[in-house]
């Protein structure tokens, strides 16, 4: 707005007290960045995990820690390279990752579709949602034996259990996402003569995207937990299998390798989800 009020004869003169010319610049030289102490704390924060690993190495070597349960990190690293070179670590990581990704797609796609449809279709929501609300508290890992019964010992049972777990998280978060779209956006679309399909595509879907991503993010975490547990008992490869068989053969180094790799994989999956969200929903700056 560039409107200026014409001074006119009745205008009061601005007093010298408030005019810009006479005021001295405020002295801000005393304001500097973080103090020395602040910076030390920052550095300590970065170094503290490294310190723990070094202490672990030290205590394990001098016998303060029982090396049978807490082998020194250097020996875990050696085991990591051995497993990597033999190809078995790649095979196990790939097996776990593949099961999680395929299971998430099988469970996630219908979850998003159903969540969106029921989000805009009130009657359907009232009839169908109670089914899933009732099933929600069932601990999903507990139905793995049933999955084994139905799908056998192959990959299908693993996909199925991940798909079921993921479905609930993504379905409920998508549904909530649609229901939380502010009413005024629907008004805007209806005022612009949007058809039902356009309303769905231009308002319900983008409005629910942040909710969908919340569901996917939660699912990634839970999928790794479930997959590790499933591979303990129901698989011949995978990181869960690696950890479990390390226990059976008392190869504690391998167990730690499995733990570290599964954590890193889970973290990387979350990073990928965040990147996809930044790309598809750049407005939702969390």
């Amino acid at each position: 707005m560039t409107t200026t009020i014409d001074g006119g004869s009745g205008q009061l003169e601005p007093s010298a007290k408030h005019s810009n010319e006479s005021s001295a610049p405020v002295d801000v030289a005393g304001l500097v960045g973080p103090s020395k102490g602040d910076r030390l704390v920052q550095i300590a924060g970065v170094l503290s995990p490294v310190m723990i690993v070094l202490l672990w190495e030290l205590f394990s070597r001098i016998g303060v820690l029982d090396a049978r349960f807490f082998p020194p990190p250097s020996s875990i690293t050696g085991e990591f390279w051995d497993l990597l070179k033999s190809g078995s670590l790649i095979e196990d990581s790939w097996a776990t990752l593949r099961r999680i990704v395929i299971g998430m797609v099988i469970g996630g796609v219908p979850a998003i579709a159903l969540g969106l449809v029921l989000g805009v279709w009130k009657r359907g929501r009232q009839v169908i949602t109670p089914i899933f609300t009732a099933l929600y508290p069932v601990p999903k890992i507990a139905i793995f034996p049933l999955m084994l019964l139905i799908f056998g010992f192959g990959e299908a049972s693993k996909y199925a259990i991940v798909a079921i777990v993921v479905f609930f998280f993504i379905f409920f978060n998508t549904l909530t996402g649609v229901l939380q779209v502010p009413k005024i956006y629907l008004d805007v679309a209806r005022n612009a003569n949007a058809s039902r399909l356009q309303l769905f595509r231009t308002v319900a879907l983008p409005g629910a995207l942040p909710g969908i991503f919340t569901g996917v993010r939660l699912s990634v975490g839970v999928a790794f937990v479930v997959m590790a547990a499933v591979e303990f008992v129901g698989a011949q490869n995978g990181l869960g299998f690696l950890i479990w068989s390390a226990w059976q053969t008392f190869a504690v180094d391998s167990m730690y390798v499995g733990l570290v790799v599964i954590s890193v994989l889970g973290y990387l999956c979350l990073v990928v989800v965040d990147l996809v969200e930044k790309f598809t929903a750049p407005w939702a700056d969390r």
């Binding site: 005024i184 956006y185 008004d187 805007v188 005022n191 983008p206 409005g207 407005w283 939702a284």
Partner: peptide, 13 residues
């Protein structure tokens, strides 16, 4: 066409 009371712009566009 209507101009609404509060901020009614779609945050995703």
């Amino acid at each position: 066409a209507m101009v609404f009371q509060e901020s009614s712009l779609f945050p995703w566009l």
